[in-house]
Design a protein around this nucleic acid. Structure first.
Lengths: 139, 139
DNA sequence: ATAATATTTGCAACAATATTGCAAATATGT
DNA sequence: ACATATTTGCAATATTGTTGCAAATATTAT
């Protein structure tokens, strides 16, 4: 994705364009999977302050640019939203895959989370599904 | 669950019986849903050291007494395993529900995680599903 | 029941992760 | 280019998780 496209993406999502945001956005575009705060801190090291990374991730998520992925261990991972996500409205109903070997977290955009029938009284709002196993590359 | 039954449960899972473990196990038995480390720290406060709670939860999980629930925010939650779980072998393939209103995390023992078809090359090992929404009590 | 052995606990220190206030720097709209 | 609004970096602080070790407790053998 070109720098111009990234500028547009930020503006489209109501954010001012800054170096930090462009850099972090670029990391997401080039990443093979989802990124944790720590990943970004390593890859963008020195240039960007830890605190800025926290705030950028928070802003990106609020504005609908990235979404979080639930994991069984304690690490929040973030991935780019493909489409249809806007401020306050995430629609990332695809399955996430975490490789037990290489640790990569991958969005399976084409596999969407199946509906399940809940016991009476439970009203579903959003569903998340995470599959662990071995990914294409590690097979 | 009586104290004697809890003692048995600990022994059955190859753990020595201690006050801390009995207290924490009791919390799980009486809890309406899953518990985070912080919840336990509050409820069992003063009596049990922070570190002991960490270690107890880790042991319980290793021995197959409780399982972790993935959440989108950064908090690990733990819940009692019902059955068929033993040292190193968890079989908690049921759906978890998190109420957006009261925040409770509930194991839906009877709803199990559906299979999904993955793209070629991905080999699934374990699936987790978490549904957000409104629970029975908050409706 | 008691002693010997193994396990667990609590404390202290430390490491890692996350949050907040505020002044300086940068971006936006006119 | 200027005025205004937003963002950044630094420092301080809070929260969360880990490790080593001696004292306390539980288990096993006698």
């Amino acid at each position: 994705m070109s720098t111009d496209m990234m500028r547009e993406l930020l503006k489209k999502n109501h954010m001012s364009v800054t170096d930090s945001r462009l850099q972090i956005l670029e990391l997401f575009c080039n990443a093979p999977g989802a990124l944790a705060h720590a990943d970004i801190e390593k890859k963008a090291s020195d240039k960007i302050d830890r605190v800025t990374i926290y705030r950028t991730l928070q802003t990106f998520e609020e504005k609908g640019l990235i979404h979080t992925i639930p994991t069984a261990d304690n690490s929040i991972k973030y991935a780019l939203c493909k489409d249809h996500c806007a401020e306050g409205h995430h629609h990332d109903n695809h399955v996430h895959f975490i490789c037990d070997k290489c640790g990569k977290t991958i969005c399976l955009e084409d596999v969407h989370v199946p509906e399940v029938k809940l016991p009476g009284g439970f009203v579903p709002h959003q569903s998340n599904m995470v599959v662990n196993g071995i990914c294409q590359d590690c097979k």
